[in-house]
Amino acid sequence: MLRAGGAAGIEHPGGTLLAHLERVSALLSSWNARPALVAAGLCHAFYGTDGFAVALLDLGRRAELAEAIGAEAEALVYFYASCDRGASYPGLTDDAGPFTDRFTGERLRPGLTTRRDFAELTVANELDIVAISPAYRARHGAAFLDLFTRWHPLLSEPARVHCHIVLGQAG
Results as ranks from 00 to 15, higher is better:
residue 57 L to Q: 15
residue 73 A to G: 05
residue 55 A to Q: 15
residue 30 S to D: 13
residue 109 R to K: 14
residue 100 T to R: 15
residue 32 N to L: 14
residue 92 L to D: 02
residue 135 A to F: 04
residue 117 D to G: 13
residue 107 R to K: 13
residue 138 A to Q: 12
residue 68 A to C: 01
residue 81 A to V: 13
residue 99 F to E: 04
residue 145 L to R: 13
residue 144 F to C: 02
residue 108 L to G: 02
residue 63 A to K: 04
residue 119 A to K: 06
residue 79 F to E: 03
residue 103 F to H: 11
residue 63 A to W: 03
residue 112 L to E: 15
residue 52 F to M: 04
residue 49 T to G: 05
residue 59 L to F: 05
residue 97 G to F: 07
residue 36 A to G: 12
residue 121 L to R: 06
residue 129 I to C: 15
residue 108 L to N: 10
residue 67 E to G: 15
residue 125 N to I: 00
residue 140 H to V: 01
residue 77 V to L: 09
residue 58 D to R: 09
residue 119 A to I: 11
residue 94 D to R: 03
residue 141 G to M: 00
residue 150 R to N: 06
residue 99 F to C: 14
residue 30 S to Q: 09
residue 29 S to G: 11
residue 51 G to Q: 09
residue 149 T to D: 12
residue 138 A to S: 15
residue 45 A to Q: 02
residue 87 A to I: 04
residue 106 E to T: 04
residue 59 L to P: 14
residue 144 F to Q: 04
residue 44 H to L: 10
residue 61 R to I: 03
residue 75 A to I: 07
residue 69 I to H: 05
residue 45 A to K: 07
residue 63 A to D: 10
residue 37 L to Q: 15
residue 91 G to C: 00
residue 44 H to Q: 08
residue 123 V to W: 02
residue 83 C to Q: 13
residue 151 W to G: 02
residue 73 A to E: 03
residue 136 Y to I: 07
residue 135 A to E: 11
residue 78 Y to I: 00
residue 86 G to Q: 04
residue 104 T to W: 01
